[in-house]
Design a protein around this nucleic acid. Structure first.
Lengths: 173, 173
DNA sequence: TATTGTTATACTCTATAACTATA
DNA sequence: TATAGTTATAGAGTATAACAATA
């Protein structure tokens, strides 16, 4: 009733002892508080990890004045063609009204343009400008190293595994 | 210069073909957009996974009128004693001013109380009320199953592995 | 009627500066 | 001087309803 993890639990890969100390002392985690009541929740772990990675992002990207969503949009535009706002909304899981203001902001910076489609006059095709592509490339180069410190606690194999597992969760139908 | 993953890459555990299709068709992921330019970024995956899990949380917890932080606070209070606001800030990675308003909201709902410490008159000890403990127990029971659907795409072993890997990332250092 | 994009708006979350009371 | 907690506030993120243009 109070044990972690609902599903049947095979062997822990490691840290089993640290998670379930036998002695009376509660595990002094971050801030001296026993966090075991929370760390059976994937959502808690992802939100902590996400916060950490957002800090890494802004530390490395503040020079380019790019927020995470803006970076994502530039990256998607640089590797896709005929991108409509609808598609961006789906790919980024962002409500349409929010995307509009983000795109307008990037457009006013001269990084992209909106071109009304001829096949379907309701659609806008979003495209990078020359300057937008330059910034996208620069940002991509930075992105290759910005998570290095956070990832340094994992081996290369663990990193790949983590990506695959998260992809399954995130993509999950 | 444009290939994913900065570090040297050993064998992919699975899905290698799906990630790097040989044919010309770009992988039609969510929304029909090729997202490979992004999915080398751990931060992107965690934010997607986090969004998905937040939805699962609110779907299951809306009856209790608890937000994620509020749930976390109740959980920490139910398994820790002599909890100061400072400790909560560290454990939750939340700025002190934000915690104040969250605690006040919970206090006004009669779920917890603040008791001025006698050893150090600056500190407040935050404690659950009877009603707070009841709600914390109820929420904990719900939390054991609320992520089941999201986690169902993983085997039990993969779930444990994912927790361990995320813990390492979140824990810093 | 349904869909794409838009406007307006409201609510939440996050972050910072400045204050108080204690140490 | 430094720390725990507080107040006030600004900014970013997120969500919904209502509308115009087009299909």
């Amino acid at each position: 009733m109070r044990c972690p993890n609902s599903m049947s639990a095979p062997e822990l890969p490691r840290d089993g002892a640290a998670r379930h100390p036998r002695d009376g002392t509660s595990r002094a985690a971050k801030g001296g508080l026993d966090r075991r009541a929370l760390d059976h929740l994937l959502g808690f772990m992802t939100s902590l990890a996400d916060a950490r990675l957002r800090k890494a992002f802004s530390a490395h990207m503040n020079g380019l004045k790019l927020r995470p969503v803006e970076f994502s949009i530039l990256a998607l535009l640089s590797t896709n063609q005929r991108v409509t706002q609808k598609k961006l909304c789906l790919a980024l899981d962002t409500p349409a009204p929010n995307l509009v203001v983000i795109l307008t902001r990037l457009q006013e910076r001269g990084l992209l343009r909106r071109v009304r489609s001829n096949e379907d006059r309701r659609e806008q095709h979003v495209e990078l400008t020359e300057e937008g592509r330059r910034l996208a490339d620069e940002a991509h180069a930075l992105s290759l190293t910005m998570e290095a410190e956070a990832l340094s606690v994992l081996t290369a194999g663990e990193q790949l595994l983590l990506f695959e597992l998260l992809r399954k969760i995130a993509g999950g139908r």
